[in-house]
């Protein structure tokens, strides 16, 4: 496409506005990386995590693989929540349910984790609070976590 990669540097080329419609695969959509960090903060909720993921429209995109970045993200994640979410939308693939020792240097594992975290986009759906059942809608790939006045 309109992109070239040189040694570690990405060059961006301007894209004429009239071809913008052809580039729908590049989106700022919700991936499971974000899901892993979202919590329901409805008033009174003590355990608003993890949110149940209900996806109505899922796409898979291709994102540049950065093994160091993925390896650094993994300790920050709730692994079980990631596995559950990926499984609930049918995109667990071969991702192991338990973290293996020395995963940082296992490129094959990091690639799978990268795919599940960064490449599976949820375009339409809901995130359901595990305690209250309150649904936070995902529209056009953006989860809406805003609370109503009586929920704050």
């Amino acid at each position: 496409m309109h992109r070239a990669t040189t040694t570690g540097e990405r060059l961006y080329f301007r894209v004429a506005k009239n071809v913008g419609c052809m580039l729908l695969s590049f989106r700022t959509t919700m991936r499971l990386l974000t899901h892993n960090m979202l919590t329901s903060h409805v008033k009174g909720v003590t355990n608003g995590y993890p949110l149940k993921l209900q996806a109505e429209n899922i796409k898979v995109m291709s994102v540049d693989f950065n093994p160091e970045f993925v390896a650094r993200m993994i300790p920050k994640l709730e692994w079980q929540a990631l596995v559950q979410a990926a499984e609930s939308i049918g995109h667990l693939g071969d991702l192991p349910r338990e973290l293996m020792p020395e995963y940082e240097s296992n490129e094959e594992f990091l690639k799978m984790a990268h795919h599940v975290l960064m490449e599976v986009e949820v375009i339409e759906g809901n995130l359901e609070c595990p305690e209250t059942g309150r649904k936070f809608p995902i529209k056009n790939g953006i989860p809406n976590m805003l609370l109503n006045e009586d929920e704050v």
Binding site: M1, H2, R3, Y12, V15, K17, G20, L23, L24, S25, F26, R27, T28, T29, M30, R31, L33, T34, N36, M37, L38, T39, H41, G48, Y49, M61, S62, V63, D64, E78, M118, N140, G141, I142, P143, N144, M145, L146, L147, V152
Partner: peptide, 28 residues
């Protein structure tokens, strides 16, 4: 979203939230 699409950026994730609420309950 439309800006990032035009610029072919694929590693931006958006969340609609009130930043002033994140303050009281940062959670994860």
């Amino acid at each position: 979203q439309s800006n990032c699409t035009d610029l072919e950026l694929d590693n931006i994730h958006l969340v609609q939230a009130d930043v002033t609420h994140l303050h009281t309950c940062p959670g994860r």
